[in-house]
Amino acid sequence: MNLSIVVVGLSVTSSWGNGHATTYRALIEALARRGHHVTFLERDVHWYREHRDLTKPSSWTVELYQSLKDVPRRFGKLIRDADLVIIGSYVPDGIAISEWITSQARGITAFYDIDTPVTLARLDEGLNYLSAAMIPRFDLYLSFAGGPVPSMIEERYGSPMARVLYCSADTEAYAPQQAEVRWALGYLGTYSEDRQPVLEQLLLSPARTLPPEQFAVAGAQYPADIVWPDNVVRIEHLAPKQHPEFYAEQRFTLNATRADMRALGFSPSVRLFEAAACGTPVISDQWPGIETIFAPSREILLASSPRDVIEILRDMPEERRRTIAECARRRVLTGHTADHRACQLEGYYAEAAAHRRRKSSRPAASRTVQVAEESLQ
């Protein structure tokens, strides 16, 4: 099954200020290795243009466009003829593009929500990239959040088929490296106002308590008025190819979760998988469903206060630290690689295509009865 796939996403060319790029790269590279032909469409905006860090794709294509009208004009035939068309969250003019795609594409259409917790928390207030009315028009809703969330999307918003598609680690790019350990604890992530309290509690506060230890925070868009402890190194941005070395330089790395993700649960970040794949043990804040991703105390360390972090940094034996890291890496390799996600997506495509065939072959009278029955429920 070699598919023609079109992905319209926020960005694949630049990882600056977003976690979408590495998620898309890992998935698309895996799909290409499996023989699928993938084209990624990205709006050409100056903040990504100035920070592009994509090396030449192996055997897939990136197309940049300038405005909404370019999509049907330049890519109309490509989208109409594709076996699978995916549009992602936070795409500029996403609602308009989705309306056009779902009315024109002959293949399976999917919405890939890399921001599911944010989407569901704010959908009723109005979003620029998705409306509730659009959800039933997609054959498939790919959710960044697992657990009960896909079923909720089907029941509450009328999705014909919602399935979890977590992010993953590209294990060809993210692997253990030899490096001198420089930091007791580090963090990699773009600034977010609702995530900053977690960073304050689980990294900055321990740093103030442990002045002999060194800490690091890497990521873009942090406000200039944040007061960093003297033993916290600030790194403005790291390209993905620099991530494995950064993780190798940490004894532990912090996973800090946005408020909407903590509230909804079952929403692991891409950095969680990438850090584990690099063999760096993770200290994470707590949220519902994290135990379905990594086993607490065996594959991941959970913290709810500065004291928890301080005790880990001060007291954990080196042998146990290494064992936790090895167990987490093993978990990633057995269930959270880009190849796993590509296989999942193939299965979802086949399931959605079969659902569409059954629906189209259903006699008109039966469809009328079903609609009538559903209206009474």
Results as ranks from 00 to 15, higher is better:
Arg251Asn: 11
Gln250Trp: 06
Ala173Val: 10
Ala133Pro: 10
Gln370Lys: 09
Ser366Asp: 14
Asp170Asn: 09
Ile153Met: 05
Leu203Phe: 06
Ile153Pro: 00
Arg362Phe: 08
Trp183Lys: 02
Ser98Tyr: 00
Arg122Ile: 13
Leu185Ser: 13
Tyr348Cys: 10
Ser151Cys: 04
Ala239Gly: 14
Glu249Thr: 13
Arg262Lys: 08
Thr257Ser: 11
Lys56Leu: 14
Ala175Gln: 12
Pro211Arg: 04
Thr190Glu: 11
Ser304Lys: 15
Gln178Lys: 13
Phe138Gln: 10
Gly265Ile: 02
Ile79Tyr: 03
Gly189Ala: 01
Arg331Gly: 05
Asp260His: 03
Arg341Lys: 11
Gln178Arg: 09
Asp230Val: 10
Lys359Thr: 12
Ala248Thr: 02
Glu274Leu: 08
Val369Pro: 00
Ala276Tyr: 01
His46Ile: 13
Pro212Gln: 04
Ala372Ile: 09
His51Cys: 07
Val6Phe: 02
Pro206Lys: 03
Lys359His: 14
Asp308Cys: 01
Ala295Lys: 13
Pro148Val: 03
Asn255Leu: 10
Glu373Asp: 03
Glu373Lys: 12
Pro288Ile: 07
Ala352Tyr: 04
Arg34Asp: 05
Ala350His: 08
Phe252Ile: 04
Glu213Ile: 05
Lys359Ser: 10
Pro148Ile: 07
Arg271Glu: 04
Ala216Asn: 11
Cys343Ala: 15
Thr292Ile: 00
Gly158Lys: 00
Lys77Leu: 15
Arg329Pro: 15
Glu99Lys: 04
Leu120Gln: 04
Glu29Ile: 00
His336Trp: 11
Asp115Phe: 02
Gly146Phe: 08
Glu299Asn: 08
Ser11Phe: 03
Tyr166Gly: 00
Leu123Pro: 12
